[in-house]
Design a protein around this nucleic acid. Structure first.
Lengths: 233, 233
DNA sequence: CGGCAATTTGACTATCCTCAACAGGGGTGG
DNA sequence: CCACCCCTGTTGAGGATAGTCAAATTGCCG
């Protein structure tokens, strides 16, 4: 049952703080789980009952207003940590965007384990501080950027994040990058605080201006990365 | 020099994790500093050179676009922690809104000290997780709420946060609360992702509808708290 | 090939922003 | 002590951006 031995995020996730023996103990309280696209792992407003590491796939963190408007407040990738340790109510739901594999722990078990392993907590703290930085930078986009700046920023961010995952650099076109988005148009709108129609219009504008190509609904080829960065503001 | 003995946030800040002796060691590497309103402690984009605890006053965390638009991404109160431990570049500036007292550490000193005191790191982790939750909830406001919902949410949040600080409950009017805002109109706009004019118009609307009174620029009396909560969406 | 959902496009509207003028009030200096 | 000034905030008019509603189109899947 020593999943961790073959875990692809072994050295990038917070588990990297643990030696082989400690890892075995952690392994004993965790279990792997596969999620289908659209499947939720945690629901908004429930007591925090579990935490997890992402092994594979992309998931969204989202909150909703009572009348159904949604805002995606975070996107997590392999090696990222999910959930709210040390009590409290989770104020975001967690839902798989692609097929995903996660390593799940009951929150109580994880809390106790973490209390005995300061190195693990340190890793988690660093990760949380980084996530807070990233989240605050995103607030500038939500509060102060125009629709065109938002969409350009989104594409730049995706190009960075997906590097090495779904990104191929095309020979002879160093700026050119192809990526497969893990988001529907609606989900992009929910990330950017826009409507689906506005996102769609911005995409076609970028296509008409020759900055991107849109071979299919989920695929984007970036033809002029620098122009996108400039437009991101 | 044992400032900590008389420190008003001794039991609420992350220092609460330390015993008397440890506190002495921490005290030795920190120093108190007073900030005037508008004075900055940390500038956006600089290397992280110091961290601090807030003892007294209110400070803002803010980021700016190149062309000068500002977004306030966090507001910190007494006992809150400021700065970016464990390296990296701080992506937010920190500026006092009111006169403020802070307990400052060089980042390197603090990092080393924290490494030897897991209890302190644990407190800091809890605080950071809480701040991340709060920040993500604010993203829903920035991305999905209307101007009237934003302003109402802001007043509700301020009423909660300032309780016990600048807040008096008026006998016979349990819903009624008076508070002195630490923000100018422009700063409120920068918190909410609005313009100063829109904020001003929302305030006068709330006044005309009898939900609040505005005795002076910085003072607000909430006459109908429940209505504000309802309008916050 | 047909059906369905996602996306795009179009027309129109509302909200919020911009620009501009005005008002208030707190502090300073005469 | 009062008048003035400057800064902050308010109010108004007009316009632009993004939202809403509706219809057309695409492409995916059986």
């Amino acid at each position: 049952m020593a999943y961790c031995d073959t875990c692809v995020v072994r050295n990038r996730a917070i588990c990297a703080a643990l030696d082989t023996k400690e890892l075995e103990a952690l392994n004993a309280i965790g279990r792997r789980r596969t999620l289908e696209p659209g499947e939720s792992l945690i629901w908004e407003g429930e007591d925090s009952v579990l935490v997890a590491n992402v092994i594979e796939g992309v998931l969204k963190l989202s909150t909703n207003t009572e009348d159904g408007r949604e805002q995606i407040v975070g996107v997590v990738y392999p090696s990222d940590f999910i959930g709210r340790p040390f009590g409290g109510v989770t104020s975001q739901g967690v839902t798989a965007l692609t097929e995903a594999k996660v390593c799940v722990f009951s929150r109580g078990d994880f809390d106790s384990f973490a209390a005995d392993h300061p190195g693990l907590e340190h890793k988690l703290l660093q990760r949380t501080l980084g996530e807070l930085d990233r989240t605050r930078r995103w607030m500038l986009l939500l509060g102060r950027k125009s629709a065109s700046e938002k969409v350009a920023s989104f594409l730049v961010e995706m190009a960075e994040r997906m590097t090495g995952v779904g990104c191929k650099s095309v020979p002879g076109f160093p700026q050119q990058r192809a990526l497969t988005l893990p988001f529907s148009r609606q989900q992009i709108a929910d990330v950017l605080g826009l409507t689906i129609e506005t996102v769609s219009r911005q995409f076609t504008r970028l296509k008409n201006e020759g900055l991107v190509e849109l071979p299919s609904r989920r695929d984007i080829v970036i033809l002029d990365y620098d122009a996108l960065v400039a437009e991101a503001g």
